[in-house]
Amino acid sequence: MSQLTSVDQIAYLDAAAATTIGRHYKRRAVDALDLRPGHAVVDVGCGPGTDLGRLADAVRPDGLVVGVDRDGRMLAEAARRVAGRSGIDLRAGDAHGLPLDDASMDRVRIDRVLMHVDDPATVLAQVRRVLRPGGVLAVTEPDWDTLAVADDDVETSRRFARFVAGRVRNPTVGRDLVRLSVRAGLRVRSVEAIAVVFEDFGTADRILGLRRNSACAVTAGELTDTDAQAWLGRLTAGPSLASFTLYLVTAEAA
């Protein structure tokens, strides 16, 4: 959910998916797709294949799940995880030019990918292209401008939140999903705002990078080392609370 080096991306994605809120919103997103046996579904930016098995189970016995990712390391890990599974096809490709035929998919799933792409509007136009009439998109994206960390030093928390948001290419794409979907020619069916809340320092640190990102903020001159260390000390001692908003939008191709 936050900016990472390529070395630890897979471990990070696994950790985020294993949290209580990660399991909750992923289940909500799959439920929103209303998958049926025989459906063809594409997971755009499938990463290490975290959710491919769940999608494949929902469209068995004769459905198809296509996992698309531009990162060869992610696809290799996905291939390892789904080895021996039928009905799963992994393809190298960019979300801005999906390697799929027009009107070939019943369902499209996007999970925290648009915040990283060069042009979310182009990606959603591609989604509209590959969806069959009546096909459904379920897209989940954060709004990093809603990040809040509770502490007596409100200004340091605000500076930290602004720094984290500034490191994401499209930090507010979550709130823009409805507008972008409509412009792509999709009809929005539902919008859900999911509060992502961390009540212990360890989990918040793993997912939000409290230590890592505050150190980067110090290096960038956005925080002083004194303020950052005092802030982290209080957060570590607890009680701890951090949160942001995740948007789940479901849309349909006319």
Rank of each mutant, 00 (worst) to 15 (best):
T224N: 10
I10Q: 13
D176P: 03
V178R: 11
E252A: 01
E199I: 11
D34R: 02
V154I: 15
R80A: 01
G72S: 05
I21E: 12
P239L: 12
S2L: 05
A78W: 10
V130W: 02
D152R: 15
R211H: 13
D106F: 12
S181L: 08
G63L: 04
P48L: 06
L177Y: 03
V117L: 08
T203F: 06
R169Y: 09
P48S: 13
T224Q: 11
G22L: 00
R162G: 00
L13D: 14
V68Y: 05
T250A: 06
A83F: 13
G221V: 13
R212Q: 14
D69L: 09
V7D: 08
A237I: 03
V178K: 11
T122K: 09
L4A: 09
T172M: 12
P48V: 05
D106N: 13
G174R: 02
A92M: 05
A138R: 07
L4T: 14
R132E: 13
G209S: 05
E199L: 15
L208Q: 03
P133A: 00
T245A: 02
S240R: 10
R36H: 15
V168D: 02
D89N: 09
L4Y: 05
D14W: 13
R189Y: 04
F201V: 08
G47W: 08
R129W: 12
R128I: 05
G174H: 03
T50N: 00
S243F: 05
Q9C: 09
Q3Y: 10
V188I: 13
V197Y: 00
D152N: 11
L33Y: 07
G174V: 00
V168P: 07
I10Y: 10
